[in-house]
């Protein structure tokens, strides 16, 4: 198994107060993994993704994506940000949004090519949104928008797909459809998905890590039900460190 991500002893602190967002995190991700990272809000999940994207530089430790520094490895990564990251009423069509995924330094002063347009159609096909190509992004439901954003990430032809809370605010029917699309994709691309929704995630991912500043990783190739249960337990242990009970629905 080829190692695609290697995080070693990574710590990130907020401001000068030395409050850790991430504390000595270690994580190895291999090609073809479908990894779910769960944990309470404010546990550092988005921070970890931003470290992988090179948007946040760790205060200590080392991060390698395909052996390179994260900021130099962005071409390998497709990113699906949290829903709140864009203006919902922005005047732009689905096709234009997905085309944005083809942008980069190499595209400055150039027009989109036929190849770009075909890649967009393919990506929209994969997420079953091709029929909506000419619709305004603002006319779509939350679940449909999220699928478009996956297409925008896929159109970069990434090796790794990073998803930040992809199903928040999406109704359950749509969630199921959404996870099935991810399951279809996982043969071709390594997926890391961050979420605070424990139950939904456990049905679809192959590995689960729990993050609450420190990372608890019970990774085995195929996680049986019992292992998943143990993974759930992880935040329970953390409750002892003073994290409030709202972290979990049960227990």
């Amino acid at each position: 198994m080829e190692e695609v991500i290697d995080i070693r002893n990574v710590s990130v602190y907020y401001g000068s107060d030395s409050i850790p967002a991430l504390k000595e995190v270690n994580l190895k991700v291999f090609r073809g993994d479908f990894l779910g990272i769960i944990g309470p809000n404010g546990g550092g999940k988005s921070t970890l993704l931003k470290v992988l994207l090179g948007l946040i530089k760790p205060d200590s430790g080392d991060v390698r994506v395909f052996g390179e520094e994260p900021a130099k490895a962005r071409k390998y990564i497709g990113y699906v940000p949290q829903k709140s990251a864009y203006q919902p009423d922005f005047p732009v069509s689905v096709r234009e949004v997905v085309l944005m995924g083809r942008l980069g330094k190499h595209m400055l002063l150039k027009n989109y090519s036929q190849k770009d347009l075909e890649a967009v159609d393919n990506a929209l096909q994969k997420v079953k949104m091709l029929d909506f190509k000419n619709r305004q992004i603002s006319e779509l439901s939350g679940g449909q928008q999220q699928r478009v954003f996956i297409a925008r990430a896929l159109v970069r032809e990434p090796e790794i797909l990073l998803l930040d809370e992809p199903v928040s605010g999406i109704d359950e029917m749509m969630q199921k459809e959404f996870y099935e699309i991810l399951t279809d994709l996982k043969s071709k691309v390594t997926i890391i998905m961050v979420s605070h929704d424990l139950t939904a995630i456990s049905n679809y991912v192959d590995k689960i890590a729990c993050l609450n500043q420190t990372l608890f990783f019970h990774g085995s190739k195929e996680i049986p039900e019992s292992d998943l249960k143990q993974a759930y337990c992880c935040p329970v242990e953390l409750i002892a460190h003073g994290i409030p009970h709202r972290v979990l629905k049960e227990h």
Binding site: K75, K105, L108
Partner: peptide, 20 residues
């Protein structure tokens, strides 16, 4: 034009796409 649209729509994604 297309870069201005992209940074207006989603600055973070543009950053990740290696746009300046």
């Amino acid at each position: 034009y297309k870069e201005f649209v992209a940074i207006s729509f989603d600055e973070e994604f543009s950053e990740v796409s290696d746009l300046p």
